[in-house]
Computed example of a mutant assay.
Amino acid sequence: MNAGNGPFGPVVNGTQIVFFEYRPNKSAGYAFTALFGLLSLAHLIYILWRRAWFFIPFLLGGLAETFGYYGRALASDQPTKVGPFILQNLLILVATPFLAASVYMSLGRIITSLDAQRYSVINMRWMTKIYVLVDIACIISQFIGATLPASGDPAAITKAKIILLGGLSTQLVALSLFIFTSWHVHSRIKKNPPELLLKDKSLRWQNYFRAIEVVTVLMIVRSLVRTIEYLQGEGGYVISHEVFLYACDAALMALVMLIFLIIHPGRFVQDARQLKGDQGENFLLGSR
């Protein structure tokens, strides 16, 4: 095992299995542990305040990021140990699919709140279910792919790479189709607003569509960089430079969580529900 600058990993049958190409940065690990911890706490408060239960997977994603980067901080002192490696590798990989699950559900609830189901290219009864099922498959594939390398078996490491690439590629396709769906509905609502928006223009509905589209682009960039990382494999440029993990994964996912704190879909769903209730009450009073 290497006690210097890397690579680091256990020695199995005389062969070193590489966990890290470098010693993970402890300060960066703890900094993002704190950042994701604070963002997760803020989302927990928002979930309880807005009763936005569909954001529970988002919270789980934030917690996965928190403990994933805690694992990287631990790995700085123990880069050859299996425990910290599995903790950071598994949780950081599965965090984004958890975050994505709530993004998928958010679009469905916003479209339903606007009574704009007819504008969706996919039947609303199936849209969220399809995307969430794909997301679950991505979580499972990335769970398996992230834990297999810990065995140290070269065959298992090769199999893990294939499984991870399959999960990341599927996620890229799902996110790309999803952003097209969001853009399509967004465009059609602008051209032909549903009755709710014609009666009351106080709902800033476009902000929520834009937020969903921005966070989806951020997730696409993250998944693309991680796909390139695993395609390049051991010794590749991306995996050998820690800056890619923090710039193209950690920072982007922290931004996703921040955007949805500022423009939270749970608020829109609640406001639209209240507006519908007020309009119904006004209609009944006017008919007396």
Rank of each mutant, 00 (worst) to 15 (best):
K129T: 12
I163K: 03
T66C: 00
G68R: 00
Y131C: 03
A146K: 03
G62C: 06
F54P: 13
D77H: 10
A116V: 01
F67I: 08
I110H: 02
G166R: 05
I140S: 07
D115N: 03
A31D: 15
P97A: 04
S120G: 10
I139M: 13
D77E: 15
Y119I: 12
L165A: 02
A64D: 11
P154H: 10
I140F: 03
L44K: 02
G71Q: 07
M127F: 00
L74I: 11
P149D: 05
F54T: 15
L39K: 09
R23N: 15
I122D: 10
G152Y: 04
L114R: 04
T128H: 01
F54Y: 15
R72D: 12
A34Q: 11
Q142P: 13
D115Y: 05
A137W: 09
G37E: 14
G71T: 12
D77I: 06
D77W: 01
T158L: 00
W49C: 11
I157H: 06
R125V: 07
P97M: 00
V134N: 14
A73G: 08
G83R: 01
T66R: 01
G166F: 01
G166T: 09
K81A: 06
I163V: 01
A64G: 05
A100G: 05
T33G: 08
P149Y: 08
K161H: 06
I157V: 09
S76H: 09
P79A: 06
S151P: 07
W126V: 15
R50P: 04
G166W: 03
L91N: 07
F143I: 08
L99V: 06
F67A: 11
H43Y: 11
G61V: 12
L148T: 09
T128N: 11
E65Y: 02
L168S: 05
K159T: 09
Y119P: 06
D115V: 02
I140Q: 11
L59G: 10
I122P: 06
P154N: 11
F36T: 15
Q142M: 02
